[in-house]
Nucleic acid binder design. Structure first.
Lengths: 126, 126
DNA sequence: CCTTACCTTTACGTTAACGTCAAGTCGCGG
DNA sequence: CCGCGACTTGACGTTAACGTAAAGGTAAGG
């Protein structure tokens, strides 16, 4: 295991993920990110990077930041008790069910649009 | 083909789809629904019902009402020219691509959560 | 004719997720 | 020491998608 001690400044992440500084500070305000402070500057770790990737993916998928926070709890096991872990796990299972349902609904929508497209093409040939 | 001439009042749809009247009027304001008027009352057709189902599904999937409006154009072919139809079709194809991409991302997220859950379970057995 | 349920329009309020200034700080190359 | 670029903290503004309250219309049953 290599000691990856990379620290990113806010501008680095801004460029890497195409977001604004405001967005990153807002996510911190919500507790989704917890960069270190050297003086008054923020320094983000690889852990923050991973979390940010997850946040942005969740956002693209239509999840609210509140829902995303729930998912991120899966990565917040800082020596918490077994009971805590078990609870987080249960929540994870629930989220998985929701995601599977969402996949199903997307497939339905896809089928519906494909059907409609077929009708329109038929209509084009008069 | 049976002549289905059902008309629904706003309260009917409210109960059937668990939304508020405000929501239905808002969707009308955006042009997503176009109920008839008898006097000043709204009367929704089966077409409106179908569209509402699609709208709500889209919403659950994280689409904005603007995006949903695009999808609904697939059902707005009121004797429009072939060029129009072709354009709508192309847009439909684009949306399909997006939906497929979204399905893929959901599968990735699912895999990621499952992996994390495995780690947590391993951690439970100390 | 009166009540009651259901509907109407108008209009201001709310929440999430940031955008957009303004004004100050920090470290470094020249 | 000075300026510059990157950063900071407020704090008010904005947009989508409705919520909500006020004030009034309408049709049917008793």
């Amino acid at each position: 295991m290599p000691e990856t001690k990379a620290r990113y400044r806010i501008g680095d992440l801004v460029r890497a993920f195409d977001v604004t500084p405001r967005t990153l500070r807002y996510y911190e305000e919500l507790g989704l990110l917890r960069p270190e402070r050297r003086g008054q500057q923020r320094y983000y770790s690889d852990r923050d990077r991973v979390r940010l990737r997850l946040i942005l993916r969740g956002r693209r998928l239509g999840f609210s930041l509140e829902e995303i926070a729930k998912i991120l709890e899966l990565y917040d096991h800082d020596r918490s008790g077994k009971t805590q872990i078990r609870e987080v796990l249960r929540m994870g299972e629930r989220k998985l069910k929701e995601i599977e349902a969402q996949i199903e609904e997307l497939k339905n929508l896809k089928a519906e649009i494909e059907e409609r497209a077929r009708e329109l093409r038929r209509l084009l040939e008069e």
